[in-house]
Design a protein around this nucleic acid. Structure first.
Ligand SMILES: Nc1ncnc2c1ncn2[C@@H]1O[C@H](COP(=O)(O)OP(=O)(O)OP(=O)(O)O)[C@@H](O)[C@H]1O
Length: 699
DNA sequence: GCACACGCCTTTTTT
DNA sequence: AGGCGTGTGC
């Protein structure tokens, strides 16, 4: 224990790290160092308790968080271990299933269906049952909720009371599971459920893994669902060495099945749980902590918490109401620019948070106008783009001819004249003979039951697939290359999509095909976050969980947006919206800006907006109202763009100063004698200079 | 009859 | 940005 850096932790954290005699729950507010406890505990277990890295099962919320944790731990322990078990529930489960899923009747090369694929399959089933495809979304959520609550189709069907919709849902659910199995595919929920099933049906395997995993660590425990909790309980059947950390005030994924009772009932399910509370916040200023704590305390059904800090008061929270979303975006962009030019912050220190993905548009536009580099982290993630999913569907179908969802995606992509009527012919053939869709195509060709032109098209499709299937690909990239060459896909799509596909291709280099597919399936938005690059981050409040930024903007704090209008009636959902706002506020280290607008264009209507009721719950002494009016800036031209007329000093160019030497120009403004240039001199800092007074040489 | 291109509509949050 | 429905052209 001698070289273990316990001094980086406060006494409560130390207690949580060294306590290893049974279940431990760290229940604490935002920024109190919960994640740090997990990281240090891992290091402590290996260094001081002699546990192998492979014997600590560590669950994080995102892959990104897992990577960062690994990096920290490796640094602390001077290790670079191969065999660690640090990851999300889903990726850890995939790893177990790849080794043993044959025990429960799947093949080990199963594929993972993401929500698109899931929706694709549900749509097909709905169509087949003559039901409206618009029900798809609703059905997908319902089924996912049933699954994350460990309710099988059989359970569900035997418990329904005969309402028509329930009865149909039961049939769809049953059918859905059967089809998945036939395709050798698992959806996200199955990944967890199958491990539970595996352990329940194979006591010896459970025993083996419980012996291997001597300790279980869980971060962001408040957002686990019932099945994930069940899995943890199974892994703890033979020992109670589990440490879960979380904050009930930050539970924001109920819509995805997260169950806040997991954290509230932990003590009951694990008798003799030790509870550690962390009360010192290391992240934020006093103003931010007091304001957010007061705001969240308006929720009922929560465990009260104390949070304090040694940091000073800092600035008050800035609140500003603008006229519309464009002005809001402009206000945010201007503030970022101003703070950046003052030199205290880099672009990567800023985050703009919002409730709805569609809010990002106006923000992006304003940042572009100001020439501020940014990255959008929420929204359609890279691997979900149509052009990427199309190529992925080829890859998966080549590996697995049972995968009807992927087949449906590629059968006429790029367009090859196999349209809706041809497809329905194929489908009915498949149904009639109980064969896979691809078999059905082959049968149609053999039996010669369609027109010559269609037959020809089908033959060339089958040939294409057969050719692609023959090769032994050395990595995912070479497979993608073949797909692109053989199908001519790139010729059919626009330039920016081509760029995406090429980027996709290069990300596949030297990756084994199946490993690549797994990685892609489990990839999330936040995983694309480049926290080392100097970009302003734009992300949803959900995606911001667990992150921190020196300067945070929360945009669109209006009734109907935050809280979202669909949550207004249900008090539980309303409380979740408040937690979402709490998560947003507590991401800020130094400065917090909150904005709302008077009217907003939403869903192609202009609406009058009221300020969010949550803002009224921030005590006025912690907050100042900024009055800004951007409406005088005509939207058509001038004013902010004077920066265009500034000959010699362009942002990014290098200049030489008589005393400070060479520096990089960060910005300049003003004209003629008033011209000011902002320069960053390495090692010296940022200076505002007037070329009229001091001689600045371009180099 | 069938496929495809264009334009209109809608968008909570996501592993 | 993507899905869906409609009109056009083969
Ligand atoms: N004992 C400590 N001394 C100094 N800094 C600390 C200490 N503990 C945590 N920190 C810092 O405080 C910040 C918040 O820590 P961490 O992310 O672990 O908190 P958390 O409780 O997981 O937060 P949240 O629940 O809001 O995601 C981090 O920047 C971390 O480095």
């Amino acid at each position: 224990m001698k070289d273990f850096p316990l001094r980086d932790l406060n006494p409560a954290q130390q207690e949580a790290v060294v306590y290893c005699e049974g279940p431990l729950l760290v229940l604490a507010g935002a920024g109190s160092g919960k994640t740090r406890v997990i990281t240090y505990k891992y290091a402590y277990l290996t260094k001081s308790k002699g546990l192998l890295p492979s014997s600590i099962f560590t669950v994080t919320f995102t892959n990104k968080a897992a990577d960062e944790m690994k990096e920290r731990i490796f640094k602390m322990c001077n290790g670079n271990w191969k065999n660690t078990w640090i990851g999300t529930f889903h990726s850890l489960c995939v790893r177990i299933l790849r080794a043993h899923i044959d025990n429960i009747g799947y093949k080990r090369d199963f594929i993972i269906y993401d929500d698109d694929d899931q929706a694709g399959l549900i749509k097909r089933i709905l169509k087949d049952l003559n039901m409206h495809e618009a029900l798809c979304k609703c059905v997908v959520t319902k089924i996912s909720n049933l699954k994350s609550n460990l309710i099988t189709p059989e359970d569900y069907i035997s418990n329904i009371e005969g309402y028509e919709f329930e009865e149909r849902l039961g049939r769809i659910y049953m059918r859905y599971q059967n089809e998945l199995k036939r395709y050798n595919a698992l959806d996200f929920d199955d990944l967890i459920l199958c491990v539970i099933k595996l352990f329940n049906e194979n006591e010896d395997l459970l025993r083996r893994y419980s012996e291997q995993f001597k300790y279980i660590l869980v971060d962001e425990f408040q957002d686990t669902n019932k099945s994930q909790y069940m899995l943890l309980q199974l892994l703890c059947r033979y020992h109670k060495n589990i440490c879960a950390v979380g904050d009930d005030d930050q539970s924001i994924y109920k819509f995805r099945g997260a169950n806040i009772h997991n954290i509230l009932n932990f003590e009951k399910d694990f008798p003799d749980t030790k509870i550690v509370k962390l009360e010192q916040n290391y992240r934020s200023t006093k103003h931010i902590i007091l304001a957010s704590s007061a705001m969240i305390s308006r929720n009922t059904m929560r465990k009260p918490k104390i949070l304090w800090t040694e940091r000073d008061w800092g600035e008050k929270i800035f609140y500003c109401q603008l006229n519309n979303e464009e002005e809001e975006a402009k206000y945010i962009a201007k503030n970022i620019k101003e703070l950046y030019l003052k030199g205290d912050y880099e672009y990567k220190d800023f985050a703009i948070l919002y409730r709805l993905v569609l809010q990002a548009r106006a923000l992006e536009e304003a940042l572009r106008m100001e020439g501020i580099p940014y990255q959008v982290i929420s929204g359609v993630s890279f691997y979900h783009r149509k052009e990427i999913k199309d190529v992925l569907a080829y890859m998966r179908f080549i590996l697995n001819k049972e995968d009807n969802v992927s087949l449906m995606r590629i059968i006429n992509t790029p367009p090859r004249g196999i349209g809706a009527s041809a497809i329905s012919k194929i489908e009915s053939e498949a149904k009639k003979y109980m064969i896979s869709t691809f078999e059905a195509i082959k049968r149609i060709i053999k039996e010669d039951t369609v027109s010559a032109t269609l037959k020809e098209k089908l033959v060339s499709f089958v040939t294409l697939i057969d050719e692609l299937s023959e090769k032994d690909y050395k990595d995912a990239a070479s497979m993608i290359k073949d797909i692109l060459n053989f199908t001519g896909y790139l010729e059919e799509i626009e330039e920016d999509r081509i760029q995406n596909v090429l980027e996709f291709l290069s990300s596949a280099e030297k990756m084994p095909v199946r490993e690549f597919l797994d990685k892609v399936a489990l990839f999330s938005n936040v995983d694309t976050w480049e926290n080392k690059k100097n970009y302003v981050s734009l992300l949803t409040l959900h995606a911001a969980k667990g992150l921190e930024f020196p300067v945070v903007f929360i945009a669109g704090c209006e009734e109907g947006i935050l809280p979202y209008f669909k949550a207004l009636e249900d008090p539980f959902e309303l409380q979740e919206e408040r937690r979402l706002f709490y998560v947003g506020m507590t991401r800020a280290k130094n400065l917090l800006f909150i904005t709302s607008v008077k009217q907003r264009k939403l869903y192609s209507k202009v609406q009058k907006q009221e300020t969010s009721s949550f803002i009224k719950d921030i005590p006025p002494e912690y907050c100042i109202c900024i009055r800004k009016d951007y409406s005088t800036f005509a939207p058509n031209k001038k004013e902010p763009e004077t920066s265009k007329i500034k000959p010699p000093f362009v942002i990014g160019c290098k200049v030489k100063h008589p005393t400070w030497g060479v520096g990089v120009v960060r910005d300049c403004y003003g004209e003629g004698d008033d011209l000011k240039v902002i320069v960053n001199f390495p090692g010296i800092g940022i200076k505002k200079l007037a070329p009229k007074i001091v001689n600045l040489e371009r180099v």
